[in-house]
Write a protein that binds this DNA or RNA. Sequence first.
DNA 1: ACTGAAAATGTAACGGATTACATTTTACAA
DNA 2: TTGTAAAATGTAATCCGTTACATTTTCAGT
Lengths: 337, 337
Amino acid sequence: MATIRQVADIAGVSVATVSRTLQQPERVSPKTRARVTSAIEQTGYKPNLMAVKFRSGKTHSLVVLVPTIANLFFARVINGMQEAAAERGYSLLLGNTQGNPELEAEYVKLVQTSQADGVIQLRAHNPFASMNADAGALLPMVNACEVLESTAFPTVTLDNQRAAKSMTEYLLSLGHTRIGLIKGPNSSPLTQERLRGYQQALASANIPFDDALLFDGDFTLQSGFDAAKKMLTQPDRPTALFCENDETAIGAMQALKQAGLRIPDDVSVAGFDDIAFSGYADPPLTTIAQPAEEFGHTAVSLLVDVLNGKIKKAPRVIMPHELVVRDSTGPAPTTCI
Amino acid sequence: MATIRQVADIAGVSVATVSRTLQQPERVSPKTRARVTSAIEQTGYKPNLMAVKFRSGKTHSLVVLVPTIANLFFARVINGMQEAAAERGYSLLLGNTQGNPELEAEYVKLVQTSQADGVIQLRAHNPFASMNADAGALLPMVNACEVLESTAFPTVTLDNQRAAKSMTEYLLSLGHTRIGLIKGPNSSPLTQERLRGYQQALASANIPFDDALLFDGDFTLQSGFDAAKKMLTQPDRPTALFCENDETAIGAMQALKQAGLRIPDDVSVAGFDDIAFSGYADPPLTTIAQPAEEFGHTAVSLLVDVLNGKIKKAPRVIMPHELVVRDSTGPAPTTCI
DNA sequence: ACTGAAAATGTAACGGATTACATTTTACAA
DNA sequence: TTGTAAAATGTAATCCGTTACATTTTCAGT
């Protein structure tokens, strides 16, 4: 690969002139500029951006910490980040953490070792275990999607509590009074927020909270399937099932259908996220739509602002959500089965 | 951030000693080593890896060109790459190309500008348009999943033709003679290979090929839905539908069910990829399973070998596939509807 | 205590691009 | 033609860690 020096030699100028031809062409006379340009073409010279980055101290790379990209909601968010990053001249370094704090720390180290400018966290598994207390405070990081109450970082999130509340209210409005909830992993703040929304809605409707209606899940299809199976073995089975994400809901529907139940006639099922598959589920899934790509855009935009020192206080951006009613929810059956 | 020189000053040694303490501790006396280590801790010194990479000329980053990560098969492949890359000390730079050759070229440029060591392409959209002819031949690149016959790059792929053939044979063995095929994008070599396998199986069974049975798709849920709708308007409708990926199949099933058809009683549907959702579709989808994570592992492993000069000839690794029979396929109906 | 080899440590060049500052060239006015 | 400011170009320092080579220290053997 040609270097700036070779180009300079061929053009018969100094390296400074070559650099200026590229950076501020108006500062170079047209004649020289032509010679340099020709030399650049001749050699196929491309500036070694490692050198540029090294010298400038800016890598223009952002680390994205994500538990797994085999999750369609995250995939959409990352697509959004990708777009926004590309627009701003940044690349994305993908850090699949599998929820493993050690791997997380490994990726955070990329920033500490000047290999990346900042970090975006998609799931706040345990953000503080992953970094030295001292470095933590200064780390250029934003939290997206899942947010610990305590973080001092800019965040972009949903009002998960309100969203879960409105879904629960919707189910209540259909006449359901026993509403099962399939949770996400308990370690996730998001799970707690959605649970709180669910409880709030029940409380407002004066329906006592029954924790026999709570089922553990981990946002996977399988866990939804398992949770629904478990639910079916219980006496006084719920007439509606609110799942904290769509994968879980789709897994649950499968288990319910296998058991011979009709959706929504016998049981209503609702999800959260509105992934593409939800519209093609059988029946199409009622869910909460989130602007996933926008999450990505906003997160990148916030982080870049932090990097450019445009942000003093850590803002908290709340993205809008929308209740998408499809066919998986319906009026509560008049007689309990 | 502390530099090696600051550490050296604090420890009262030269920068070389600090470097050696980190790289080859046995070459430094225990006493000095202790002083240096303490200075490192004191300052929280971490080597600036941009400097290291710049000097070594190795970035230990790999670019992954992927049309979209919102595709579960790709997501699994990328997860696999991630693992393999991490094991070998590499990071992944995600390049979402949206099938856009310009964006593709943009990412390939990362290698040409020494920001990445190599490229893995997941969809051979048009690999040669994206790079200068001269640079192309030397580019450290591997092709995964989709492969142009002509490439001179190491590849890891499936025998798509054989896989499609065996799926078609399986459908034939169920008594289907009119088998529809929902294709992927025509630009994709993979589409052609699978089509060829389909044709081959028909030919072996002495069934004339009818291109009214071919439907265009683009690997999305929506395109499967649309293709199936279109199919339904045709006279002499097929009794089986082979879709070139699972998303398409799931979309198609939705359209068929909406039209009142029962699967597999009225129409059999088969997919390709075996994404997680396929097992939870209604009915669970018959498909071809691919070792997605292994694709990722192998691709990274090949690329790293190329980078280390361990590979002379471009190998072509064929991964195994498996016919997964579930409930979406069954015997051909005796009377056509 | 002295020699010599081995061990420990230091010095400085290097990688490629940028840029402050220095120098040369150009162009125009007097 | 000369002087001068502006424009063009060049020189060399800089970013930070690595490492070949140079120098100093240590220590066993005598």
